[in-house]
Write a protein that binds this DNA or RNA. Structure first.
Length: 337
DNA sequence: AACTTTTACAACCGCATCATT
DNA sequence: AAATGATGCGGTTGTAAAAGT
């Protein structure tokens, strides 16, 4: 059968629109309203395909379009919605007044996607990626920044990870770090109390604790980045989720949880953090979710930007710095060294 | 200053979906 | 029910501007 083309494209102009064309299209739509795009070009005196006119109008000329840089809130919304909806740009844009699907898509591809990749987050699954090529650099920067937070980018890949591979990767990285930065290595690990330095054997050993709360691999990590679970210390410097009984343990070997940067108050104590209910009310995310997530943790947002970076991008870069991890049962660093 | 590479974004293309005949 | 048309959607490309060498 075959469909007829949306318009006869011979002799029709393509490429960037001129101000004159924009004016013609705007004037016509303002008088006659949008729609009937097939016949519009001829009536409006444009040598363009109707489809092109529709796109130009909806993506650029429409008066209610908001232009300019995306705000924090908009970016957070995009990430949260994308973790739930995937590449449903139109659906995402529908929740961002004044933004078009094309704009959201472009912004995702040029900004957010790259940032997530840099931070070790898979932009498709929103789960942490374990790329051993990056392990050293991330861990190095983590240690040098006196925080273990970024390691979560690696260890959070519970669904993707082969435990043996993890041991190997961590061992290699830790060894090289220890050789390259022994002072930092010795200085910071005890502070974070995730590790302890066994001075007698000059080996690293993990303080083990039964894992009481784990997030399921089904939980998008970028959502988790903005989900500050109320947590509390539960001994030995480890942090646990108080409502652990509500969580699932998909892979007991690995235990990933969200927690505040050690230098800032926990989510439950931070008044700047948007309330759980407020978020879900704003976005109605529960209604959008196609598959239930196992974690009761809500989608949250502003909490990810509470450290004091100066530039917008720097603050956004901090996305990755708000996760902590716990070492899984049975993972003994002495095996690595 | 000239050239190359990268980035950002507008626009295009093909397919899907829905409405109408 | 099938054919056809109109519109929407998402992936991809083209290109100007910015950044780097």
């Amino acid at each position: 059968m075959g469909r007829t083309p949306c318009c006869d494209k011979t002799g029709l102009k393509k490429g960037p629109w001129t101000p004159e064309e924009d004016l013609k299209l705007t004037n016509y739509v303002q008088i006659h309203g949008p729609g009937n795009w097939r016949t519009l070009p001829k009536k409006a005196g444009l040598e363009r395909c109707g489809k092109s006119c529709r796109l130009r109008w909806t993506n650029y000329l429409r008066p209610d379009i908001k232009r300019g840089r995306f705000s924090f809130e908009e970016e957070e919304t995009i990430i949260q919605l994308h973790s739930v909806l995937g590449n449903k740009w139109s659906a995402i844009a529908g929740r961002l007044p004044g933004r078009t699907d094309n704009e959201v898509k472009n912004y995702w591809n040029t900004h957010i996607r790259k940032r997530l990749l840099r931070n070790g987050i898979d932009p498709v699954t929103h789960a942490p990626r374990l790329d051993f090529l990056d392990l050293s650099s991330i861990l190095s920067s983590t240690l040098c920044n006196q925080s273990l937070a970024n390691v979560s980018n690696l260890l959070g890949a519970q669904a993707l990870l082969n435990p043996q591979l993890l041991r190997l990767g961590l061992a290699t990285t830790l060894l090289s770090l220890k050789q390259e930065n022994p002072e930092i290595f010795a200085q910071h690990l005890p502070q974070n109390q995730q590790f302890c330095n066994n001075s007698q054997e000059n080996q690293l050993q993990v303080q083990l604790q039964p894992s009481t709360c784990s997030t399921s691999a089904a939980v998008p990590c970028t959502s988790m980045l903005s989900q500050m679970e109320p947590i509390h210390a539960c001994g030995e410097g480890l942090l646990c989720c108080p409502n652990a009984q509500e969580t699932f343990v998909s892979q007991p070997n690995y235990h990933l949880q969200c927690s505040a940067n050690p230098t800032v108050p926990l989510a439950s104590e931070n008044s700047n953090i948007r309330s759980v209910d407020g978020c879900s009310q704003n976005l109605s995310l529960d209604s959008l979710r196609s598959t239930p997530i196992s974690s009761p943790t809500p989608l949250n947002s502003s909490s990810t930007f509470i450290n004091g970076s100066s530039s917008m991008d720097d603050e956004r870069e901090s996305f990755s710095s708000l996760l902590k991890f716990e070492i899984p049962d049975g993972l003994d660093f002495s095996e690595f060294l």
